[in-house]
Simulated scan of single mutants.
Amino acid sequence: MPVEPVTLSGRAVRLEPLSQSHCDALVEAVRDGEIWRHWYTTAPEPEKMAFDIDRRLGLLADKTMLPFTIFDASKSPVGMTSFMAIDRKHWRVEIGSTWLAQSAQRTGLNTQAKLLLLTHAFESLNCIAVELRTHALNFQSRAAIERLGAKLDGILRNHQRARNGTLRDTCVYSIIESEWPTIRAHLQWQVDKPHRQPSQP
């Protein structure tokens, strides 16, 4: 399963291979809504953005992550996402390490980005399953994952320590190959519906 940097483009979103050249714009994006202050998320603090980009690029070099910068229709960076936990033996990936500027949330942009990622995973990488994980108390993220059509596989209790030292229960969702045609049609229908336009930070 060759997993190489690639640009994925849709009507109102573009996913480009992550680069340090995106750092300053991503700092501004994470400040939009102070996303890093949400204790249950993994968005980097502004002063740690360059470090987080280097961390992700290091995982890319190790072939365990394929990180992207998320651009909106105005060609502005509004967040990050990744293919991670890449399993070449069993042809599985996880979509994760995702965050979006507050003004880009609830605009349909995340659905479009997930449609691009899932299409690439199932139709280019020939994955048999795609996994999505989130904090059990991140109800906004859980609802967004469930709207994609992913099914809850289970909850990993005391799975990790959060940034503030608390213990995280992790909800594990997945979409499998046989479900993809129906979910693709559902996501395309969601993308084609009118959505509110991103507000200015």
Score class of each variant (00 low, 15 high):
Leu66Asp: 02
Arg133Gln: 14
Cys127Ser: 12
Ser141Pro: 15
Phe139Tyr: 15
Ser82Asn: 12
Val191Pro: 00
Glu146Pro: 07
Ser82Tyr: 04
Arg161Trp: 04
Ala121Val: 10
Ile155Cys: 12
Ser74Ile: 00
Gln197Asn: 03
Phe83Thr: 06
Leu118Val: 10
Leu100Thr: 02
Leu18Glu: 11
Glu131Leu: 11
Val30Gly: 09
Arg55Glu: 13
Cys23Leu: 00
Ala162Lys: 08
Pro2Arg: 15
Ile175His: 01
Asp24Lys: 08
Glu177Gln: 13
Phe139Trp: 13
Arg31Pro: 00
Arg106Thr: 06
Arg56Pro: 03
His186Val: 09
Asp169Ser: 04
Gly108Leu: 12
Glu4Pro: 01
Ala29Thr: 05
Arg163Gly: 02
Arg92Phe: 11
Phe68Arg: 02
Thr170Trp: 11
Glu4Val: 15
Val6Ser: 15
Arg163Met: 10
Leu132Tyr: 11
Gly10Pro: 09
Gln160Pro: 00
Thr134His: 10
Ser178His: 10
Arg14Ile: 08
Ala185Pro: 02
Trp180Met: 05
Gly165Val: 04
His186Glu: 01
Ser19His: 07
Trp99Gly: 12
Ile145Val: 14
Ala121His: 07
Glu94Phe: 04
Pro2Asp: 14
Leu117Ser: 04
Leu26Ile: 05
Cys127Gln: 14
Ala150Lys: 11
Ser141Trp: 05
Glu179Ser: 04
Leu100Ser: 08
Ser76Ala: 11
Val130Asn: 09
Gln105Asn: 04
Lys75Tyr: 05
Thr182Ile: 10
Trp36Lys: 09
Pro194Thr: 14
Ala143Lys: 15
Leu187Ser: 09
Glu45Asp: 08
Ala129Val: 03
Arg14Ser: 09
Pro17Ile: 06
Lys63Phe: 13
Thr182Lys: 02
Pro67Ala: 09
His159Arg: 03
Asp153Phe: 01
Pro194Gly: 07
Glu131Gln: 15
Lys63Glu: 15
Asp52Val: 08
Leu152Phe: 07
Trp36His: 14
Leu115Thr: 08
Ile176Gly: 02
Leu148Thr: 14
Trp39Tyr: 02
Val78Ile: 15
Leu152Asp: 06
Leu109Val: 00
Val13Gln: 13
Met80Tyr: 02
Gln102Asp: 07
Asn164Ile: 13
Ile155Leu: 04
Arg14Asn: 05
Ile183Val: 07
Val130Cys: 11
Phe68Ser: 03
Ala143Asn: 12
Arg88Ala: 12
Trp39Glu: 09
Glu94Leu: 10
Ser103Val: 03
Ala185Cys: 01
Pro181Glu: 06
Cys171Gly: 02
Gly154Arg: 01
Ala50His: 09
Gly96Phe: 12
Thr81Met: 08
Leu132Trp: 09
Asn158Phe: 02
Tyr40Asn: 09
Arg55Leu: 15
Trp189Ile: 02
His90Cys: 02
His90Glu: 06
Asn164Gln: 10
Gln20Met: 07
Lys151Gln: 09
Val3Pro: 01
His90Leu: 05
Asp169Met: 06
Met80Asp: 11
Met49Ala: 06
His120Lys: 14
Trp189Pro: 01
Val130Trp: 13
Ala61Arg: 14
Arg168Pro: 00
Leu156Pro: 14
Thr81Gln: 05
Ala73Ser: 14
Gln190Met: 04
Arg163Glu: 06
Ser97Trp: 15
Thr134Lys: 03
Met80Leu: 07
Asp192Glu: 11
Ala144Cys: 10
Leu156Gln: 13
Thr182Asn: 03
Gly79Glu: 08
Leu57Cys: 05
Leu132Ile: 15
